[in-house]
């Protein structure tokens, strides 16, 4: 009884504060969904009720934007980046942890230093490199510089420390080659690590903006992120259309979040922006 009466004020404060923060966090999502059902003029006047313009907005979005192509571009870039990054980084993380050597340890430390390199310092040389290679305006140019990721290698190496060495020994006795051990034993055993790493890489690739903005210059190659940005930067943006676009662009990451919530948080905890 005593604790209840003395705790009522702090409790009220806690619920009020946390509730307000939760509301503010979710509010833009509600606003986005309501916005998609309203005309642009009502949206920027702050209307907060569902309207009747959803069908018009969706229709306008589909006329302004080649939706299948844009989604295909985004999907292509994301899938390529994700599959290649996971493959290359898990091989390296496994290699660094299982086959130790002094030289590789040095290279590993040097590699971790690249985590501090800001992208702004890379974009000009990368742009010139891609220009010389004739890759401007291609999806290969978008994906290539993102595959070698010191962070994802680090993530896999840390997780490989938990990979039981008995499995490797047993596989060797059975006469498996090193690549077979990796492919048939390591990959299936480490699937939760792959899941968390998948989320980090998927989110980064799907939402990547600055580098695609530089490299992708024609409408045929643009990704959904670039399209939304250019729709919203029009002199008089049609916010109804923009809202439809942001919903469609957010849905894949939202779906990944809700279906893989545990791995999502795990991936976030391990991710470095």
């Amino acid at each position: 009884m005593r604790t209840k009466s003395t705790n009522i004020l702090p409790a009220l404060f806690t619920y009020g504060f946390v509730g307000l923060m939760a509301f503010l966090s979710v509010f833009p999502f509600i606003w986005m969904v309501l916005g998609a059902t309203n005309a642009s003029i009502d949206i920027i006047k702050g209307k907060m009720l569902p309207g009747e313009a959803l069908a018009t907005n969706v229709a306008n979005f589909f006329t302004l934007v080649n939706v299948p192509l844009v989604f295909w571009n985004s999907a292509k870039v994301t899938i390529l980046a994700t599959v290649l990054t996971l493959a290359v980084s898990s091989l390296a993380g496994y290699g660094f942890e299982i086959f130790r050597s002094r030289q590789r340890e040095r290279l590993y430390s040097a590699m971790l230093l690249t985590l501090m390199i800001p992208f702004a310092a890379l974009m000009i040389p990368l742009f010139i490199m891609m220009g010389k290679a004739g890759l401007i305006n291609t999806h290969i140019a978008v994906v290539l510089p993102t595959i070698g990721s010191a962070f994802v290698v680090f993530y896999f190496r840390q997780s490989t420390k938990a990979f039981p060495s008995e499995l490797r020994d047993a596989a060797k006795v059975d006469g498996l080659k090193e690549w077979q051990i990796f492919l048939y034993i390591y990959v299936p055993v480490m699937r939760s690590t792959y899941a968390a790493a998948f989320i980090i890489v998927f989110m980064t690739a799907w939402n990547n903006y600055l580098w695609p903005l530089i490299v992708l210059q024609s409408n045929e190659t643009k990704t959904i992120t670039l399209v939304i940005s250019s729709l919203a930067s029009a002199y008089y943006p049609d916010y109804g259309v923009v809202m439809v676009g942001t919903i469609l662009a957010t849905l894949p990451t939202l779906a990944v979040f809700f279906f893989m919530q545990r791995q999502f948080v795990q991936g976030m905890l391990g991710s470095v922006k």
Partner: peptide, 21 residues
């Protein structure tokens, strides 16, 4: 084996991070 496993990642990082910086 050690070099084979780490080579792709190190090569890409060298080409797209170290060389540009």
């Amino acid at each position: 084996n050690g070099w084979l496993f780490v080579a792709p990642a190190l090569g890409l990082i060298a080409l797209f991070m170290v060389y540009p910086i």
